[in-house]
Amino acid sequence: MKPVLQARNLVKRYGRVTALDHCDFELFPGEILAVIGDNGAGKSTLIKAISGAVVPDEGEVWLEGRQVHFASPLAAREHGIETVYQQLAMSPALSIIDNMFMGRELRKPGIMGRLFRQLDRAEMERFAREKLNDLGLTTIQNIRQVVETLSGGQRQGVAVARAAAFGSKVIILDEPTAALGVKESRKVLELIQDVKSRGIPIVLISHNMPHVFEVADRIHVHRLGKRLCVINPGEHSMSDAVALMTGAMQPGQSQAA
């Protein structure tokens, strides 16, 4: 089977800091790939490099067997890669609808849209409401409210709903449950399964081992700027995974007890 999204030999340096050191990455169709690693291991940089938010200094990114160069997140999005960033990428003073459609607004049909470029608020609202309902975000009282009045979990829900609504080839989630309560985390995990059942592969970056082991098909262990190994959650324990990513254990080795 060929990977949907593949990266070879990615290198990214920030001044004297090497965030990515000849890193490889593969995502196969229909799978959930978890990416785990210590703080500062370069997980976020890896994600940014494949989602267009940073341009790698060296290396190649391949999408569906073709090499791609993403100069911006918009370019990646146009190729069907949606990302939910840890810092959520929302404009606090704008409404939920404005944020969901940021950069891909719908215009009214006919002359109002073409000539006066008027936004189709009604249609955007309908679509956003539908997507939020799918996610079970019932605690949002008013879809026109501005994002800064939402709680952290609600913002996360909106961001995930945005990615799920528009992602067609790959969805990347950077720490999607980090700021969430028990119930919201469950919703997000259900959504991840739901997206997977629609055949869209997901990259999940998380520090939450129970969540990772629950949903992931494969686990990419990131250490010191590169892929240390890929493990199968069925064959390894959570403590193995933690040992690998912290350097307490080498790949291939199995921990006693």
Binding site: T83, A89, M90, L94, M102, G103, F116
Partner: peptide, 29 residues
């Protein structure tokens, strides 16, 4: 006022002023 409220460009102007990096990541040029 119309352009700022009812067009995509106008929403982008607000988004850039609100949080430029977030706007960039959301796909605003």
């Amino acid at each position: 006022a119309y352009a700022l409220r009812h067009t995509a460009w106008g929403r982008h102007v607000y988004a850039v002023g609100d949080d430029k990096e977030a706007a960039e990541l959301s796909g605003v040029r």
